[in-house]
Design a protein around this nucleic acid. Structure first.
Lengths: 341, 341
DNA sequence: GACTGGCACTCTATTAGCAGGAGTGCCAGA
DNA sequence: TCTGGCACTCCTGCTAATAGAGTGCCAGTC
């Protein structure tokens, strides 16, 4: 048996009321609060069906109904019209972000903004190195056999590494090295650089220069591409305590533990598709500690490219339409901000 | 009336038992668990005095006694012999820290180590710029009128800033600039540099060079000294949930909120004296949100200098001797580590 | 004067019992 | 297909009673 429109409407009403009140919702309360145009008895029948299909459940006999993960999923997929952000919220974003001075600042402001608007835990990934492009590479002689390599990316990140050379290299050669490296790599996405770096080495005729370039190349490859050292910012953990500890089946402990693992957080907001907002509800999270949480995440970046992810985490009982709208709006805003630079 | 030895012994017993069991401790239980050599009635009299003096209190009539902040303070100041770390703990530190590759890694490992050993929330401040010394300054021409300034400190931090010059400067002059700047500033503590930078400008004869140096000087002063941008690492928040929520009078919320404010954290572990471990108990913390928490902190750095702070935060009901010993040991270890580089 | 045993007292925590209420499932009828 | 009615279940809140822990105080002893 499939679900007719009214049953879906009942589900929506249950989800909305439950999110609102945090209490199991009964048939009578439902018809009182929503104009369903039918009697409680009818609603009860619908509820029985919804329960059989696994969208809602009773904590115990003679309690009201509570949505299951599947219920929320259905709600998000079919019953949610994403509500546009209120002008007040838009203004809040502007006001919060204006005046950010550097990348660090942008990320920190973003994560706090997200936490504040959604009143949930927010995570923002720094623009990933491997998905950024090279803006400029600088080589600085520290001694005759050591260079410092400084890389600036289009997202504003700066990385530096020390290069030990096989032998002394005159300054003139350093200039030449710098020229060649920049010529080949500037503007390229980091993920695309490995073959180019390889070619740089091959193109050297002089065996001595080739050795030097090989050294440089290995540092470039090893530290700038392979080691993708992702960084994260986190905010709003205090929001976990809203609505008592009830939301997370007794303890915050597992959730707090999960939030301390960068690997886990990266998994949560990783693998995103451009211009979409992903929702993972309860059990859909692969991390055991987060079975009672939902994550709304989105990629961000200049234009339609993605250079990092951001998202919020909260109880499965969350305001999905609102959260989705906010996450999406913030992701867009940050993307535009990056595009401007 | 002053407190004789036995009363102090009773206080110690109360603190130890309460930390252990998390339950108010009564006179009978005390004489059972500790060899006090007197009867419960006597202990009760002592307790009455201790209570009058404000070192312990009863949650309600006919409950056992619980130490007050003042009680813990007395315990820490006069009744605690710092127990040396067990060999197992020493080994744990070694094992945990060995193989740290760079400063970031050191800080992250340290904070996790602290959290793990003390089973509390740990905070580690990155080596503060203003208290580090300059190892090397590098000037990189980006274009004819722009330089990149790269500073490497003795604690391994690297900072870079762009300098806009008033006019084109030939490469030879850049070399000269670099020489002079390094001559004057290398090895100096950042906090001591401002007058030196000033002198650098004054020492220039050629007006054109003077203008260039002035530009450089202002960037040096403004971004490297004044903006002391402190960074922090945090770990172990999940430990707050140990022992129920009882420890923090009902909610973790205020504590979690406080932990999100970098300013607050810096205050907690700031202003430390060399080679001492500071303990702030409950109300002694100036931050309202942390009235029910204690903070054990210590400065660290190579030798007897301090380049940053670290510490742990937990319920006032914590194992002070153990925590103090651990914090001190870790601070020393990290200091030695920094000294080696 | 310091310590001890005894005793009455206070307060909490636990348990059981009971009433009220919310919510359900089911059935017969419109 | 929907509705009203009804019996049933189970939670919740309230009260009362009880047991137990711990205290304060007092009188007596060393």
């Amino acid at each position: 048996m499939s679900l007719d429109d009214r049953k879906l409407e009942v589900l929506r009403a249950i989800v909305e009321d439950y999110v609102d009140t945090q209490e199991p919702v009964g048939s009578k309360a439902l018809v009182d609060r929503h104009k369903l145009g039918v009697s409680p008895a009818t609603v009860r029948n619908d509820m029985a069906v919804l329960e059989e299909e696994g969208y809602i459940r009773q904590p115990h006999t003679s309690a009201g109904r509570v949505p299951t993960d599947a219920g929320y999923r259905l709600f998000v997929d079919r019953l949610t019209r994403i509500k546009p952000l209120s002008p007040a919220e838009r203004r809040a974003i502007e006001r919060f972000m204006v005046g950010a001075v550097d990348l660090d600042d942008v990320v920190h402001r973003t994560v706090r903004l997200l936490a504040q608007l959604t009143r949930q835990v927010a995570v923002v990934q720094y623009p990933s190195l491997s998905r950024s492009s090279v803006r400029h590479l600088e080589l600085v002689p520290i001694s005759t056999t050591r260079l410092m390599l400084v890389m600036i990316t289009d997202t504003g990140r700066v990385e530096q590494r020390l290069v030990e050379l096989p032998g002394p290299v005159p300054d003139g050669d350093v200039w030449e090295l710098r020229r060649r490296v920049n010529e080949k790599l500037s503007g390229q996405r980091l993920a695309d650089t490995p073959p180019l770096v390889q070619r740089l080495v091959e193109e050297c005729d002089d065996p001595e220069r080739k050795a030097t370039m090989a050294c440089l190349a290995s540092v470039l490859l090893e530290t700038l591409v392979e080691r993708s050292e992702e960084r994260l910012a986190l905010a709003g953990t205090a929001n976990l305590t809203r609505g008592g500890v009830l939301d997370f089946q007794g303890t915050l402990r597992p959730v707090l533990e999960a939030l301390e693992e960068e690997v886990i957080l990266l998994k949560l907001i990783g693998d995103l598709e451009p211009r979409t907002t992903r929702v993972r509800i309860g059990d859909e999270n692969e991390i055991d500690n987060l079975r009672s949480a939902s994550v709304v995440s989105s990629g961000y970046g200049p234009g339609t490219t993605i250079v990092g992810g951001l998202g919020v985490l909260g109880p499965t009982r969350m305001d999905y339409p609102g959260t989705i709208a906010t996450v999406r709006a913030v992701a867009r805003y940050v993307g535009d901000l990056l595009a401007q630079n």
